[in-house]
Deep mutational scan, measured.
Amino acid sequence: MFKRLMMVALLVIAPLSAATAADQTNPYKLMDEAAQKTFDRLKNEQPQIRANPDYLRTIVDQELLPYVQVKYAGALVLGQYYKSATPAQREAYFAAFREYLKQAYGQALAMYHGQTYQIAPEQPLGDKTIVPIRVTIIDPNGRPPVRLDFQWRKNSQTGNWQAYDMIAEGVSMITTKQNEWGTLLRTKGIDGLTAQLKSISQQKITLEEKK
């Protein structure tokens, strides 16, 4: 169930391209415009997507990853294993993690069937560096609404905000991946996880038929 919630949630996290980005210092504006741009692209490019579902990787690479804190999220997933990894191991892992996100997020976007969304009203940021933004996803086919909290983090150097995690039903996506990959990290280390991520990233994206 959580895996499905995570995939549905990713439908609204794909941010804007650099040329049309919203105010990078306001995570609420980023979330709002990102959702609108993403849904528009999914709707307008269905012919290309249906002809070649792996085209979704391109959308992810162009529109999402430049505005997601990939390395920060990847380091959180590694936890204690990050500090013990060599620079070469980290570089290989982050490259594999990025390719994994292209496949995983692309597969999530393949679930698009006309969903709509509501974003919580903007709250004062103050001096906060981590801000959760509640998004409610509404399914046109009558499924119950899904309420999610996207975690946005302020870059201490640039002042810009980027998304790095999502919490559904009190469970963090980062925590879920830590639990899912924990045994592999304990037995085969970061190299074993890197190899698995490379394998997963090679899987073809498949479209979910409308139910």
Rank of each mutant, 00 (worst) to 15 (best):
K198M: 10
L30S: 07
A19H: 05
R153V: 00
A51H: 10
Q69G: 12
A104S: 12
K211F: 11
I174F: 00
Q196V: 07
S17R: 12
N179V: 06
A22D: 11
W152G: 04
E122S: 13
T206K: 14
I133P: 04
A163P: 12
V135S: 02
A35S: 13
D40R: 10
P27T: 06
M6Q: 01
L64K: 01
A104L: 06
L65Q: 12
A73G: 15
I130V: 01
R57D: 10
A9Q: 03
E122P: 13
P121R: 08
W161E: 09
Y112G: 04
E122Q: 11
A92Q: 13
W181L: 15
G106D: 04
P145Y: 04
L42Y: 06
D165E: 00
Q69I: 04
G192S: 13
Y112E: 05
V12E: 01
D191N: 07
A75F: 00
R134L: 02
P27G: 05
F2R: 01
M166W: 08
G106R: 01
D61R: 04
R57N: 15
L148H: 12
A75N: 01
A35V: 14
G106P: 07
A75T: 01
H113E: 10
L207P: 13
P15E: 06
G114L: 04
T187A: 00
G189N: 05
E45Y: 12
L101C: 15
M31T: 03
P66E: 10
Q36A: 10
Q107V: 14
L101R: 03
L193I: 02
S84V: 11
A110R: 11
V135L: 02
Q118P: 11
I133E: 05
L64Q: 03
A110M: 14
I59R: 02
Y82N: 03
V77D: 04
P140G: 11
L11E: 00
Q178S: 07
R4W: 10
K37N: 10
V60K: 00
R57V: 15
A108Y: 06
Q62E: 13
T38W: 04
Q203L: 13
A9L: 15
L11I: 07
E208T: 14
V12M: 13
T38E: 04
L193A: 00
S17C: 10
V131D: 02
Q118Y: 13
D23A: 09
T86P: 10
D149M: 04
A18M: 14
D127A: 00
T25N: 09
G159D: 13
E33N: 04
I167C: 02
Y28C: 06
K83G: 07
G79F: 01
T116M: 15
K29V: 12
M6V: 05
G170I: 01
R50F: 09
I13D: 00
L185P: 13
Y112D: 03
A163F: 12
Y100G: 09
Q151P: 11
L148F: 03
M173W: 02
A18L: 15
P66K: 05
S84D: 10
A88T: 10
G189L: 02
D127G: 14
A95R: 08
S199T: 11
T136Q: 12
A104G: 14
Q36F: 14
A22Q: 15
Q80V: 14
F94M: 15
P15T: 15
A195R: 11
P66M: 06
G170V: 02
F150N: 03
K71I: 02
L197M: 08
D54K: 09
M7R: 03
A96V: 13
F97P: 00
I59Y: 06
V8I: 15
V131H: 13
D32S: 12
K211W: 09
P145I: 05
D23C: 08
V70W: 05
G142F: 07
A9G: 05
Q69N: 14
I13F: 15
K210F: 13
R4V: 15
E180N: 02
Y93S: 04
A95N: 12
L42C: 11
S156V: 01
G106A: 15
E122Y: 09
A22N: 12
A95V: 12
M7K: 07
Y28T: 10
S17T: 13
Q196R: 07
S156K: 03
A51F: 09
